[in-house]
Simulated scan of single mutants.
Amino acid sequence: MTDLTPDAVLDASGLNCPEPVMMLHQHVRDLAAGGLLKVIATDPSTRRDIPKFCVFLGHDLVEQQEQAGTYLYWIRKNAG
């Protein structure tokens, strides 16, 4: 099983597109290479936007879950 203990948490609950991804960009920038960021969001558009963000910037979307209208993502920052 993958260890999903994050190095940092971004709670973007209640925010709508594009705010969660804008905040994600800043949080990933501040994270050390290889660090794991947990994102908590309530905007359904993050299901599309966050995976695209990871592909575009080369980060690893380790895990993605949905729990009662809350979307959870674990993103590992690329080493570059």
Rank of each mutant, 00 (worst) to 15 (best):
P20V: 09
V21M: 04
M22C: 14
M23D: 11
M23C: 14
L24F: 04
H25T: 15
Q26D: 14
Q26P: 09
V28W: 06
R29N: 12
D30K: 09
D30I: 05
L31S: 04
A32T: 11
A32G: 14
G34V: 05
G34A: 09
G34D: 05
G35L: 02
L37E: 02
K38V: 04
K38P: 00
K38I: 09
K38Q: 13
V39N: 05
V39H: 06
I40M: 11
I40W: 01
D43W: 04
S45D: 13
S45C: 14
T46N: 00
R47W: 10
R47G: 11
R48W: 13
D49S: 12
I50R: 09
I50Q: 02
P51F: 05
P51N: 13
K52I: 09
K52N: 13
F53Y: 15
F53T: 08
C54P: 00
C54D: 02
V55F: 02
L57E: 10
G58R: 00
H59T: 04
H59S: 08
D60I: 07
L61Y: 08
Q64F: 04
E66Q: 10
E66W: 05
A68T: 10
A68I: 06
G69P: 10
G69W: 02
G69Y: 03
G69M: 02
T70V: 10
T70G: 07
